[in-house]
Design a protein around this nucleic acid. Sequence first.
DNA 1: CTAAAAAGGTTTATGCAATAAAAATTTGTT
DNA 2: AACAAATTTTTATTGCATAAACCTTTTTAG
Lengths: 209, 209
Amino acid sequence: MSSLRARQKEDRRNRIVSSAKDLFKRKGYDKTTIENIAVAAGVSGVTVHNYYGTKAGVLLALVIESDKRLIERLDASLSREDGGLVALTLSFARQIMEHAITNLEKDIWRQVIAAVTTEAGTQLSKAYSKLDEQLALVLVRRLEAMQAAGRLAKEVSPLHLGRALFQLQNARFIEFISSDDMTQDEIETRLRNDLVALFSVCADQGNAP
Amino acid sequence: MSSLRARQKEDRRNRIVSSAKDLFKRKGYDKTTIENIAVAAGVSGVTVHNYYGTKAGVLLALVIESDKRLIERLDASLSREDGGLVALTLSFARQIMEHAITNLEKDIWRQVIAAVTTEAGTQLSKAYSKLDEQLALVLVRRLEAMQAAGRLAKEVSPLHLGRALFQLQNARFIEFISSDDMTQDEIETRLRNDLVALFSVCADQGNAP
DNA sequence: CTAAAAAGGTTTATGCAATAAAAATTTGTT
DNA sequence: AACAAATTTTTATTGCATAAACCTTTTTAG
């Protein structure tokens, strides 16, 4: 059962987040104040703080929402991808960048990245990290499918490979949003270079002296 | 020639940064105010802002100093490393983590990471990124040496491989400082898993359908 | 050597995020 | 209907960040 109180709270949360999203897009992150958000949502500024801790917290909540949708779309879309590992990873990266820029400006994404690290340990930050893990698992599932289809050597660990590829993609994604001048194409090139270089190393070279 | 003005300015910069380093270590980052730093350095609070823009800017300046020293030590130390790629990368990662925790607390490093992304485009942020590039080049030089010694296949690009390995290491480093509970050993394990998984993929699997 | 000019720092003032404590309101219960 | 509990709003404070006016000190030029 959901009491009136619980429903009202949920309602306020929704109003705060959607007001914030609206204002962030219209006025930019820096120019919108917590007070602006509070007024638009019909609550007091302190309540916004009580709910989300910081202004960045509100932003994080909003990003988490839209990322959940991304994961579903990505999972469906990548299953139609039938190239090699490089193509798969690049497609993965491209869709994430696409999703990012269609939703928010780069400078707002920079705030997101910053918030995730400074607020490490908070609920929202953990929730965000969890989504990252789920994104990595989307990749892992594709690798498992490839392995089952005999297009990936048996001795490779899909889990570890998927996580590694995700880390690499994520690092390049951060590079992408860190500069307004950086284009998607340039990032794709860099990521491709990473992958080609790594895959051109054979296992025996990696380990032995 | 350096005019009196230039020398005075340099002097103030030094006083600000060293006062800040001292205070950050003694009181922690959050507890030290810009005003504290200013008083300790014998300047006004606004001057600290004029010089470094933000409190995080002062922190960045201080980190850049100590990172320069790291690069030199790392370059020397890695040249004595004679294992495979995995061993090389792990040694690289270990020394960076070691350097990080002996200099500053994890929560201060989180502020550093956040500052680099939010202040993207500023002088200090660019300077930091440049150091990252130099760190990557330390790795690249080692790979070139390995290739020359015939311990790395001719078709591999040391530049691209070095950058890829650096990105991976850096992503795991950020993971390391993002949680107080995360140990160096755990990060090493994760990085090793990344590398082993990536190197177990052969070039033909990576590309073709 | 002195006076104007330029450079750079300080003072002063304002806006906003973040936090804490007290006060007021509303919901839930007996 | 009145009381108790939960939750929000009010009110107040600290500190980061920034802008503008004001001074001091160094340079430069006569």
